[in-house]
Design a protein around this nucleic acid. Structure first.
Lengths: 136, 136
DNA sequence: ATTCGTGCAAACTTTTTGCAGAGTT
DNA sequence: AACTCTGCAAAAAGTTTGCACGAAT
């Protein structure tokens, strides 16, 4: 991934290396503030702006995914391969879901008249097992 | 829809009637500011807060849908029946797409271990015909 | 009459931006 | 050396909230 930085004309700084390490390591789709907090475990002086700028740069170049789950707070995913997400509306947890078989989703015929589809995002919303259990 | 207000213990005010009229009439999935601007054509004194509060109240009761397409600005849809959306990443246009056949989407088996799915949101992202044409 | 909604203003949160100094190629 | 990145602070944008008045039931 650090290679991808260079390939995209971005400079490889200490901060960026750690931000990338953090987002690649985790599978919990953190938001910017969470990434920042975690990176501060290793680089206490990182500023939130730097995390925003790094994440935006990576997203614009397609190196990470942005997941919009609630009205505020974007969340990010280092896995850019085709897959779907389950979102718990109670606790906010996001879990990766493989897209089965032929992509998981069929477009209606009307779609080609509307535009060119470059990406399909599937969000399963509901309540995760932990929150279902807590409810009782 | 105005009936649904009463059924949910919400008072039927002049502002709410017009806000609902506006969002039901249009199919372009407007954001709060757009709804407010349009309602002002008929009630010049509506405040943006009132639109926010009305829209939130409707959304919380499941009477309208919220669509998160970009990092800022939620967009709303009075159609709460099962359907998908095409989003143009260039101009922001959102077009309704019927979900074909058996719901349009199959979940992987893993899903039932993760939680209970209450809703599935499918977003087709790409470039709409207008933006493809403008590009040339 | 009671309860809820509205408008105003201000607060809050998330994200973006200008700038001077430091780091990377 | 050139250019970009960082951190600080301040600003911008979207959304929420406290309060007093007005409207709906």
């Amino acid at each position: 991934m650090v290679e991808a930085l260079r390939a995209n004309g971005l400079k490889v700084t200490h901060q960026r290396t750690e931000i990338i390490r953090e987002i690649v390591q985790t599978k919990d789709h953190p938001d910017v503030e969470t990434i920042c907090r975690r990176v501060r475990g290793r680089i206490p002086a990182v500023s939130l702006d730097t995390v925003y700028r790094t994440i935006s740069a990576l997203f614009e170049r397609g190196l990470i995914n942005r997941i919009m789950v609630d009205a505020k707070r974007a969340r990010y995913d280092a896995d850019v391969t085709r897959h779907n997400h389950f979102v718990c509306d109670t606790c906010g947890r996001i879990v990766d879901i493989d897209s089965t078989g032929r992509g998981g989703c069929r477009a209606s015929d009307k779609l080609s008249e509307v535009g060119v589809v470059e990406r399909v995002e599937v969000l399963f919303r509901g309540k995760c097992i932990h929150c279902v259990a807590d409810q009782e």
